Amino acid sequence: MAMESNSQKKSFCVLGDGYGVVMVPKELDLEKPHHSFNLIRFQLPDLTKPIKEFLRNREVGEFVSGALAGAMTKAILAPLETIRTRMVVGVGSRNISGSFIEVIEQQGWQGLWAGNTINMVRIIPTQAIEFGTFEYVKRAMTSAQEKWNQNDGPRLQIGHVNLKFSLSWISPVAVAGAAAGVVSTLACHPLEVLKDRLTVSPEAYPSIAIAVSKIYKDGGIGALYAGISPTLIGMLPYSTCYYFMYETLKKSYCFAKKKKTLSRADMLLVGALSGFTASTISFPLEVARKRLMVGALQGKCPPHMAAALSEVVREEGLKGLYRGWGASCLKVMPSSGITWMFYEAWKDLLLVERRYL
């Protein structure tokens, strides 16, 4: 007689309800799950190191540093920008204190930050492109000069006259400053137009969307580039002088004080002086530029920069070319100083392992 071993015996459980009973092996007990499922865990890759390495790239670090410096500066100095714009275009009071009081009475304290949203949107790409272009072109020009000098440069023989071409008379800083101003202006000029419209006429342009719609309806795409010619013409002397003065004062100060780098306070002072000098030299062109950009609001838009300048002289005399200069310096000097201070600080932070001058 065949006997079943204990290992072959099967135990049963009873399943039933009011209609019947059935016996099934315990291995198939439906009331207890006999399969165990492992949870699927997703782990995001650690991007900290790649991001740090990306930001420490020279060009990226300078680009980001410029954007952050511009944003922080504009957030602090927005009220001065509002007063400066109103005085330059001839809206409201003709003195700084009167403009402050007028804005507060008409629009409240928030009126001092009129157009600041578009100003922030404008300044981030503008400063990023400007500083990034400046640093890149300066390095490229310096490298080109070094290679040119090493190869002794090209020569031109005309009879007994031997002409040698040289790039040593060209300042890489000046060329880089001019390039920075032109490139950033071409890229971000429509945002400047929007900012001025929102600042000068917040009633007519209560939001960015409405401002874009009205400007486009009135003049198409060309209206967003109103005043681009005088802007470029005015930007060339300003940007060239601005960067040239900063680099020159920085090197001279370090040489005089026998320092390798400037302190934050020194950067604030040197940046303020460079902004003051550049603004003073190019201010009449700034007046003409602002007149062209917002002239349509007053129903009398000059056809070109020369007409705008002559209009100012005819109505207000030569001193009209510097109307708002005090407010401009009040804004430009701290803005320039703070921007350079923040820029150098962010660059030191982002390029901590690689220091570039």
Rank of each mutant, 00 (worst) to 15 (best):
Q150Y: 04
P125V: 05
F255T: 10
W109M: 12
C13A: 11
E81Q: 10
W148E: 03
Y253D: 11
K164R: 11
F276H: 03
I208Q: 06
T73V: 06
I101S: 15
K260C: 10
I51S: 10
K147A: 15
Y243M: 14
R84E: 14
G227E: 08
V88I: 15
S7D: 11
K260L: 11
L262I: 04
E311T: 05
M3V: 12
V91W: 08
Q110N: 10
W325E: 06
S282V: 04
L351G: 10
A128Y: 02
T199A: 09
P230Y: 00
I76E: 09
V91D: 15
K251Q: 08
M235V: 10
V287Q: 11
Q43H: 13
S36W: 11
M245C: 15
S171F: 00
Q107A: 14
G159F: 03
E311F: 00
T82V: 14
E135G: 00
E81R: 00
V313I: 13
S99P: 05
S263V: 02
Y216V: 14
E53Q: 12
D196Y: 03
A204N: 13
A176G: 07
N38C: 12
K195F: 14
E62W: 08
K251P: 06
G20M: 05
F134S: 02
R323Q: 13
R323W: 05
I40A: 14
P206H: 03
A71K: 02
G92F: 02
E81M: 11
L156I: 07
Q43K: 09
S239N: 07
G337Q: 10
G317Y: 02
V137R: 00
K214C: 04
Y242P: 04
E192F: 08
S207N: 14
N116T: 13
P230G: 01
